[in-house]
Computed example of a mutant assay.
Amino acid sequence: MKENWSDSDAEEFANHLHQRTEELYNIPDAEPDDEGLIECSAFIMQDMVIFPRMISPVFILPGPNMVAVLDAQANDETMIAMFLQNPDAEVPTLEDFLPIGVEIAVGRLLSLSDGKSSALIQGRRRVEIVEIVQDDPYLRVRARPIYESIEVNREIDALMRTSRDLFEKCVQLDRSLPDEAHIYSLNIPEPGWLADMIATAISFPLKERQTLLLLADPKERLKRLNWLLAQELDVLQLEDEIQSKVQNEVDRSQREFYLREQMKAIQTELGEGDIWMRDIAELRERIEKAGLPEEARKVAEKEVERLAQMPSMAPEVGIIRTYVEWILENYPGISKLKIISTLNTPPKY
């Protein structure tokens, strides 16, 4: 949403989005036939996963997916999202897709300036892909709906509590996750639904999201989810520690800069000027008058420039200044060849 939108613009956008979401619920689920199978147009996905009960925007290019969507909308039908696991297949067969898909509802198409279209899609339920019954002008498949029915016993309850606790910590550390996401998870009573919701919120790698989709058993799905959440939390905690250290260093540097500026102001007020910069200027003047050979002069000037960039109380200041003094004081008694050799291996500091 644009930052300069007015309240009325924001309200209109929210109402429009709500209307588009409500339209999805008006599309009925496909009715199973006598064999318990449903037949729907396929919506092929390659780089994303949609989970049941979740809503997500998608981009649709002109081609089979577009034709399939238009036909499904004309007949007020759901579709089956099929997840391509072999992107190199020119004419995909059943083996090129994940064995599990998701029945989805596809909302109104919105045309974009680049020729693409966008739409909201809503996951309904997992389905087991049985066969492809049509491949032109788009795929049409038969699938068996997967119904989740599991009793929430002590083990399942413990797994759900762990999922919510880990998810809450991730939300606290990940700024891209809204606080409302955790609140929403607290009000989900079903284990499978909870796992799918959290898997949608967290940006897991595509392969891991596909793995979670394939786990039809809610208990196994929660176990896998908790393992992934623990890994994600470790990464977020490490990132938080690094950011805290960096921020502390920035704060310390800013404090030192502020104190140095205050010191300069006090010295100027007392008529003393900047003593440290006067020392630097004196060193530059001595180097200029010393008549050093070019190699020695370049090294000395480089070290003085380093001094000028440092706070006067930095621990390296004494070592660098001693090195410069050594070049200035010892050059007259050293041959050109020897001083070049020495300058190429300066003291360690």
Rank of each mutant, 00 (worst) to 15 (best):
S6N: 09
S8K: 10
E12A: 09
H18N: 14
D34C: 02
I38L: 11
I50G: 05
R53E: 10
I55E: 10
S56E: 08
V58A: 02
V58C: 02
A72R: 01
N75D: 10
D76T: 04
F83L: 13
F83I: 15
E90V: 13
V91A: 08
F97D: 01
L98N: 03
I104M: 11
L109C: 06
L110N: 14
D114T: 03
S117W: 07
R126H: 12
I129Q: 06
V133W: 05
D135G: 11
V141G: 01
E151F: 00
E155C: 02
I156P: 09
R161Y: 09
D165W: 05
D174L: 07
L177D: 03
A181W: 14
W193K: 11
L215C: 00
L222M: 00
L228N: 01
L229G: 02
D234E: 01
L236E: 03
E239D: 13
E241L: 12
K245F: 10
R260M: 07
Q262F: 12
T268P: 14
E272I: 15
G273E: 15
I280R: 14
A281N: 14
R284F: 13
K289W: 14
E295C: 08
R306Y: 03
L307S: 10
R321H: 05
W326D: 00
K336I: 15
T342S: 08
T345H: 15
K348A: 04
Y349D: 05
